[in-house]
Design a protein around this nucleic acid. Structure first.
Lengths: 213, 213
DNA sequence: TAGATTGTTAATCGATTAACAATC
DNA sequence: TAGATTGTTAATCGATTAACAATC
């Protein structure tokens, strides 16, 4: 029996991780059940939306009481693969790269930073939060030996494309790109553009939070 | 004549900032015009989508040549308010907070970090990238004096809700929340949940980039 | 001219919301 | 029982894609 392969849209995944946060808070409060209207209220969304999302993680609830908090948390973790290790390298040991290497929350979701890379000889050899900084020239060898497919790109925008070319050539297939640059990559390489400021603008643009009001 | 108030959806804003990145790259390459199929190809989207988005920033192109790169860049910046200052405080001078305070790219989009706040006496008084760390107790006074409405919340998840309550009480209206917690806030406070790991999962979940394949 | 592109409308697709029978 | 909730289908809404006349 072939395992059913479900495609979860980005919006569903974002909501599921928010449900997951809520569930952790419920568990800490000692609560055992949560209903779809409760989740919906906390997030300001529709309750049938919540039930549909929960259906997508193969969880069932009980009439009148709702969903078992621990079971639902497990279901979300299983569906989103929190327990499956996703190894990654950080490229660029600047401010953002260093901060991400110390960001322990990643490991709760199965994302492990194995090492960092930089071209600055002064940074090479330093260890940040148990992650060593290697010279970028060491990346091809380590990518192959450790079978790493994911790179977190936090280099200055001027060197982002060169860097991308280099790491793709070394075998990287997934680039989580923090540089505000649109990278040109082969069709078999996946890029996720994490433009933090863009995310911020999505938040405030329509509300016109300006200093001059 | 009242200025037309357009609501831009999050997806449109995200695409516009990507177009903006492409335009900068075009300008650096000395190119003067760009067409919708060119933009569409670089981003892997439909070209009529691009034309619709560009229409939303009140820019017009020329048949056969496309859009003037500099003009289009200006139009996007005007629509998204890059030139309008958006002052913000960072709450929590940990790894992520410190990194964001040094993230100079923010200023290109009009986001200014004025100061940082922390409850740790050892951090208070330190200056990071010209931004001073104040004790959190100083926030209400400074929020009012500087008329700051935006806070970037980078505190540990355990203290996030308390922190949110405190800064909302001090007058903060917009919270860019980097803690993996769903905050309970009054209806007049806006929260944007920036769960980095959630963003990452949106990127890789459907592709099953696991170590065990 | 021929061909590429814009601007715009219509068609399609997908996501959200409403509604409600079944359940406990 | 009465009332709250689930699970699911139908209706609505919005976003993307297709199509094409107008333009240069």
């Amino acid at each position: 029996m072939k395992e059913e392969k479900k495609v979860l849209t980005e919006k569903v995944i974002k909501r599921l991780t928010l449900y997951h946060c809520i569930l952790i808070q419920y568990i800490e409060s000692g609560l055992e059940f949560i209903s779809s209207p409760q989740i919906a209220f906390l997030l300001g969304i529709d309750n049938s939306q919540v039930r549909k999302d929960i259906k997508a993680v193969n969880n069932t609830g009980k009439c009148k009481v709702g969903y078992n908090v621990r079971e639902l948390k497990e279901s979300i973790e299983r569906t989103l693969g929190f327990k499956k290790n996703k190894d990654a390298f950080i490229i660029g040991a600047g401010n953002l790269g260093s901060a991400l290497s110390k960001y322990d929350d990643f490991s709760n979701y199965g994302l492990n930073i194995l090492a960092m890379f930089d071209s600055d000889p002064l940074k090479v050899g330093i260890t940040i939060n148990k992650k060593q900084i290697f010279h970028i020239s060491k990346l091809p060898d380590l990518t192959r030996r450790l079978n790493v497919k994911i790179a977190i790109l936090t280099v200055p925008r001027q060197s982002a494309q060169n860097c991308a070319d280099f790491i793709i050539n070394a075998g990287i297939k997934y680039i989580w790109n923090f540089s505000p640059v649109v990278l040109k990559v082969p069709e078999w390489v996946h890029v996720w553009n994490e433009n933090l400021t863009s995310n911020f603008l999505q938040f405030i643009v329509n509300d016109e939070v300006r200093n001059d009001d």
